[in-house]
Write a protein that binds this DNA or RNA. Structure first.
Lengths: 212, 212
DNA sequence: GCCTACATGTAACACGTTACATGATTAG
DNA sequence: CTAATCATGTAACGTGTTACATGTAGGC
């Protein structure tokens, strides 16, 4: 059983879906935390059905093949429950962004600043998008901690927290790079990245930093 | 050219290394942002040498095969420089942790709390380890923004910022879960995750939250 | 008539992990 | 003498991406 299996079981745990719907669900990077193409999803669903973790019902479809709606079985739900609370293996940290940052000493200060400014914008956009997602949550869904919506909301909050932290780091780094470009010799250790961002941080460009 | 190639070029950009040393370098998750096994590194180095991006020098070794020390070439450095500043493709967000969190409504409140508490500890440990790494940076290395050490330090700061944010999120979530378990009906929307953690957050258990 | 959404599948390839294979040197 | 470290490679397998293939229904 791989992680994708559990991602699919997780998505099916709240309602039955077709392979197509699962693929759509996993396409948007926001508020979902696993991606897969339909080419990976369809065979996996067949495999899960073979293990009786999901069950397919043929529904009237309009394609050349049957449309199948998958529902999680009692066995599938048990497997998912067991997995949810099992020890989490350390996740391999891979970040192309940090790899780029580490190589930025090779480019000109202006290019480095432009690169980080682009990253900053990217964080701000993600933050704005998560903010919109958050607006879609009805307060009623969130009172019960045993309700799926509560934990979905919690993952959204995680996203918001992380994006804000990323934004704050960009601001710190941009500040450092600007100071360096202007020939100041302040030791970096004396300064620290901001640990907080003003409440309006998800609005675009809350504290304008001149890039050029 | 894949990301691993640039990760290797990046590691070689500051000094020549053997394949073994590169594998060691990429093994520790801390302060490095790409991992690869030696079985992936060795063939890749041979491929890079074929493209004249690195050059191997046979050095006196003690194994059954020659020991090769790889150095980046001028062509390799140019390729790395070009890549560093090129548009960063959106990274596929995959987090098994968030997948687990989303499935936590299936387990008992106590199990959910224990799971998040373990996550919290994991964040705290990472934070502590990064703090130690930070101590290894000499202040002298950090005054020049065109020095590789400065950007390595910046990635470390990123790690610290992110881990602190993760820790703060765990605290928020634990608070919510405890409140729910104790039968309080406060709407979650009324509360927000902490946006800051006290300065001593990298010390283990700065604000003790009783797990059981 | 054309494009998009719905809907499912396979094939080829790229990337990553685990296991197999070999052997010298050095510290305990 | 035994284990760890240094040191390099290949094979098999699992996972993930891109491309190929097919066909209907509905909106513009």
């Amino acid at each position: 059983m791989n992680t994708l299996s559990y991602a699919l079981l997780g998505a099916l745990s709240t309602k039955a879906r077709t392979g197509w719907e699962l693929a759509q669900h996993m396409k948007s990077p926001i508020a979902y935390m696993w991606t897969a193409q339909h080419s990976q999803i369809y065979p996996e669903l067949i495999r899960l059905a073979g293990h009786k973790l999901v069950r397919a019902t043929v529904i009237p479809g309009r394609g050349p093949r049957d449309t199948k709606r998958y529902a999680i079985t009692a066995t599938g739900r048990r497997a998912l429950t067991l997995w949810a609370d099992s020890p989490l293996p350390p996740e391999a940290a891979r970040s192309e962004m940090l790899l780029r940052i580490r190589a930025l000493w090779l480019v000109s200060p202006d290019q480095a600043i432009a690169f980080v400014a682009t990253r900053r914008q990217s964080f701000a956009e993600q933050l704005a998008q998560l903010g919109q997602e958050k607006a879609g949550f009805a307060p009623d869904d969130l009172i019960a901690a045993d309700h799926p919506e509560f934990f979905a909301y919690a993952t959204l909050q995680y996203g918001l927290t992380i994006q804000r932290a990323g934004l704050a780091w960009c601001d710190w780094l941009l500040g450092q790079l600007h100071r360096h470009r202007n020939g100041e010799t302040t030791t970096i250790l004396a300064s620290e990245p901001l640990r907080d961002v003003p409440a309006g941080a998800n609005k675009p460009e809350p504290r304008t930093i001149t890039t050029r």
